[in-house]
Structures are given as C-alpha cells and as structure tokens.
Design a protein around this nucleic acid. Structure first.
Lengths: 336, 336
DNA sequence: ATGAAAGCGCTAACAA
DNA sequence: TTGTTAGCGCTTTCAT
C-alpha cells in the first residue's frame, strides 16, 4: 500500500541503509545522495513506519501523559502545554486518563505503558504506593507534576506557601473567622497538594492564635458545584466565617455563587480567596494565589525529554515554581 | 530486558505461536494450555510489545484526536470523553494539538499520522481543503465533531437551531435590539459552527422584521476575555442592545463581566444567552443553549471504533445531536 | 490443538 | 560514503 523504505532505495538507486541515514539527517551521507533521497521520498509520499523503527530502535518517541481528569481547568491547561512541548520535539503524546464514570478512580497499571512510551508525565494524581512503584519499575524517566516523589523527577509549587499567602492575606484584612474549602480528606493520597494547603491554612491560623472550629474545615471536592455546597454549609453556620480560603478557583466560584444566592455580597459579607489563576477568576474579580500551570506542564515535558537525551539526572531533579497572590475584588477588610 | 514472547513460550513448553493465540483469546487453544500460558506470562510479567505486534499486524490500536485547542472548555470536555471511550476499548489516544504560541494555527499535515493510528477524530477544527484531503487520503476511518464533512463521518449539533433557540428566546421576551457575539469571521473556515450560529441569529432577526445594525455583530474570539471586549463595545454604542446572543458560554461570561463592570445589571440592563452548557454557567445563572459535549466526543470515538470493526459504513454516517435551551437568570423581559 | 518459519519495515553493526 | 545483513518481537499462514 504505502511506500516502504525499500521502494525509496530502489528508486534512488541506493541501499535502504543510506535512505535511512539520509532521511534522519545522520552524518556520512553525501549532500547529493541526501538530496536525491529526499526528493524521491517526497515524490513517493514516503513516511517512515513508526512501528518498524520503534521495533528496530526500541524507542517509541512517545510520552505518556497521565491525568486523573482531563476535563478540569488545571489539567486541561497542563495537558495542553505538555502536548505542545512534546509535539515540537517530535514526540507523540499518549493520553492516559484515570477518571471513571462512577468517580472511584480505576486502578492504574503503569505496566501497561511498558514498551509503549519512552517516558511519563504524571499530573497530580494521588497514586497508591503500588502504582508509584509500578511507575518506578518502568525504568523510564518520569516526572510528577504537583508533588515531589522519591525516585522520580518533579515540578510543583509549594502548597504550604500557597495556603499561607491566602490565609495571611485574610488575616491582614482583619479576618479571624476564616474557613477552608478543600478536597476530600478521605482519599488515600500520596500527593500532597490538598493536604498541604489545608495544613498551611491551619498552621497560619494557629500561629495567629486562632483555632478554627471543625465546621470551618469544609470539603469542596475541587469542583465548582462542590464549592457551592461547601459555601452553603458555611453560610448556614450560627457563626459563619467572614473569610474563606478555597484550594482552587473553581471551588471559589461555587462559594461565591452560594453567597450570591443567599442574597449576600462579596466581599461585603464574605471575603473569598482562590488558588490557580483561572481565567474566569480574573473576570469575576476573584482574589487568587496564582500558580504557573502551563509552565509546570511545559517544564515537566522538557524534563522528560532532557532525561531521554541524557542531559538530566533522571531521578533527582525537583523543581519548585513560584506563586503569587493576585489581590482582586473578592476580598476586603472585615467589617464589624 | 523485559520478557519476550519467546521466554514465555520456553517456560510454558509451547511455541510462540501458541502463546500468541492463547494470550489473545483466539480459538483452537486447549483450556489447559491457555491457563498455563497465562500463568507463566503473569509470573514473568510479560507484556506484549506494542511495537512488534503493530509491525506484524499493521494495526496500531491507536486513534488520533486532533483539536485546535486543548485548554478550552469545549475541547477539554470532548477530549476527556473520547479518551475514556478509547481506553475502554484498549485503544491509545494520540493527542494532536493544533494551537501555537502566536495564535496562527500551524499547518496540519495529516500525512504524519500515516502508520501511527488506525483512525482519526477531528474536533471542530477549521481545516483547509488541503488538510481535509489529507485526512481523506489517509484512508482511515475519520469522524469530524462539529461539522458535516463530505467523505467522512460526523457528529454535531445543528448550529442554526442553536442560534434560533437563543434568538427567539430573546424575541419572545420582547427584545428587539439583539446583538450577536461570535468568532472571527476572517478565519478561513471549512467548519460551519461559528458562521451557522451567526447566520441563524441574522435569519431569525430578519424574519422578525428586524435588521440588526452592523455594530451588533460583534467578535468575541470564543474566549472570555474576547467576550469582555465585545461586551464593552456593545455597551458603549449610542443605542446599545438589550439582549445578546453569545456563540459560547465563555464569551457570555466576558459579556456579563463587562455589564457588571459598567455598573449595570443582568438581566436588568442586558439579557445574555450563551451556548454550550458550561458548568460555571449554571452557577452564575447564565441562560444557555445546552449541547451534549461529552456525548459528541464519546459518540465520535465509538463511531471510529465501529468503523474499524467494519460495523459501520465508513463515510456516510452523519449524526446530529439535539440541543435545548436552559432558561436561567440572565434573561428577562425587556423593560421600557 | 500446536509448531515451524516467513515476514512486517526499519535500524545498526560491520564490511567494503 | 555506501552496502550487506542480521535482528527488533510479534503474528500468521501452512503444516502436522
């Protein structure tokens, strides 16, 4: 059906080895031959068979991108950046989603990636110990985005700092009744983002001499609708908070909606801080701890590629990217 | 390094052919042998080399997912659904993004997919004629999401209906000064969604005896910030509209923000309708023409897979999914 | 039901 | 600089 290397070789009057070299830009090929081969290949519409060269070289020129969700803002941004970076280097992006209709995350068997990719980028997935081990056992360069994992590279932000920035901002505005909306603490996490953010909030509160009531520690499942529910609960308390730290902008949107639906105002009745730097947050004036999402993805991709080229120590690179607080209209001094 | 089929064969005391058959569940293998082989393979941690079987069979068990953007809501939703569907059938999802730093879409050479995938899903990309031809020439089952393309399958919604529903809703509320915020009419489109929506709006307006001024035909680039700009322009008109049809919810968010920032109210001063069914739209009470995004993606994936199994005519399947108007709080009767 | 052996299309020594 | 040739690991007739 399609032209094979042999066809090109015959037409160009050279051997297949020469065609292979010429087309891949390897040295020791005369410019003349290279030109001829290129021309013939072009004319025949020859495309190297990925399968064949994979088998012959053992390299797949593909990287797996593992993500728990593909339809949430953070992951969509990151995946987009990763894909762009990989494509630019001629690598395929093999998408591996871990979501499931019924919410429970399916088991992820890293073994299935064996022989299918040259490297792995794992996005903020709370992996079990077994799964982590599986990733390590692949013996491929792997970089985790969102948490430092032993035995692999990582790119992340400092989630303690994230929570600290948000919480201190509210404290400085005079708030003392500050709640936190985060993920589900039940999930067996190996990843630290959610718990670190919660810990950061709690630590700052305590070091300010405040012990938040248990009810101020709310669950928003990192979704807007989860945030809505959490917000409603917080507002229904006898002593509702005057400020809320949300571990993601999407949850913050939910909280803001709860406030509005309760006939209350932001920041008049409740100051809200989010985390992420979601595009829509800018529009609605959400104060947020902005993290470089696309950059984390792009960097992660570049790190796997570098490791593949041997440019990087495969398992000791841990990068922490900076975050910053973007103060907008959803936070204001507490009113008496 | 890793166990090969030969290792399994030796350990199990059978030939490689038998191992191959046994593991793939082919007939003509005694249950006993099958069990032995399975056990040995398990013990050795044997995983079939995708590259080798690809080369041997010519099938890649991979599908390309081509999208102009991966970081926008619609595409993230669709890709997520497609990936889930493919994974369930044991197919790899090969992500091909067409975005580019400088906005101009890079040339897409479908030829590069040759031998790398068994089928293609193309998401609402305005492909040039050459590119479309390229996709057809691949000779692979292809399904387009978002537009009916000759010579390939498609899944989409009726964009004329979409615009009609939105526009008629506003007309019924008594609005006559109804603007439209859509994409950039300059882009060389082979895809119809944006222009159909605009056409639908215009047609309904005219058949109501209204000729909207040119300034009511605004460009929002299908982004929230684009919507913000468009909204600002519309509000600055001497005779601003009382209702706006936005071709996407994200643009609607932008318009809503423009209204709020102008110190005006929704729907008091401006009724806004969006298109998509974005999660956040529900939260902020955006009236919207809801389309089944994930369903379109999932269906598209199933269609390629079906075609691959020979269950479907490869080039004549055109599905149009229904949409519906979700009336929420962003639209109200025009006030005098 | 199972085995032997010839590819699948390319790459990489090794020769020339 | 170029050619020869032996794999890469699996699948698939064709035998048995």
């Amino acid at each position: 059906m399609n032209a094979r290397i042999e066809d090109v070789a015959r037409e160009a009057g050279v051997s297949t080895a020469t065609v292979s070299r010429a087309l891949r830009g390897l040295p020791n090929v005369s410019e003349e031959t290279r030109a001829t081969v290129a021309r013939v290949a072009q004319r025949l519409g020859y495309v190297v068979s990925r399968s064949a060269s994979r088998l012959a070289t053992g390299r797949t020129l593909a990287i797996a991108v593992v993500a728990p969700y593909l339809d949430r803002w953070f992951f969509a941004q990151a995946v987009s950046a990763i894909e762009a970076e990989l494509q630019q280097s001629g690598f395929d992006a093999l998408l591996v989603g871990l979501q499931q209709p019924d919410e429970g995350r399916p088991d992820f068997d890293p073994g299935m990636l064996r022989g299918r990719v040259d490297g792995v980028v794992v996005l903020t997935v709370p992996l079990t110990g077994v799964e982590l081990d599986g990733v390590r056992k692949l013996g491929l360069p792997a970089v985790f985005v969102g948490a430092a994992v032993a035995g692999a590279m990582s790119v992340r932000i400092d989630d303690i700092t994230v929570a600290r920035l948000a919480t201190e901002h509210l404290l400085e505005l005079g708030h003392t009744r500050i709640a936190y909306v985060g993920g589900d603490p039940q999930q067996p996490l190996s990843f630290t983002a959610p718990s670190d953010r919660r810990a950061g909030w709690l630590a700052v509160m305590r070091s300010a001499g405040i012990e938040p009531p248990a009810a101020y520690d709310a669950v928003g499942h990192f979704t807007a609708s989860g945030g809505l529910v959490a917000g409603r609960r917080l507002l229904a308390l006898k002593s509702p908070p005057t400020g809320v730290v949300c571990a993601s902008d999407e949850m913050a949107f939910g909280v803001m909606t709860a406030v509005r639906r309760a006939g209350l105002g932001i920041p008049a009745d409740l100051s809200v801080v989010g985390v992420d730097g979601h595009e829509i947050g800018e529009l609605v004036g959400l104060t947020s701890v902005v993290q470089p999402v696309a950059e984390q993805g792009a960097l992660a991709a570049r790190m796997v590629l570098a490791a593949l080229r041997g440019d990087l120590p495969r398992r000791s690179e841990h990068v922490v990217l900076p975050v910053h607080l973007a103060v907008r209209d959803s936070t204001a001094p507490v009113r008496d």
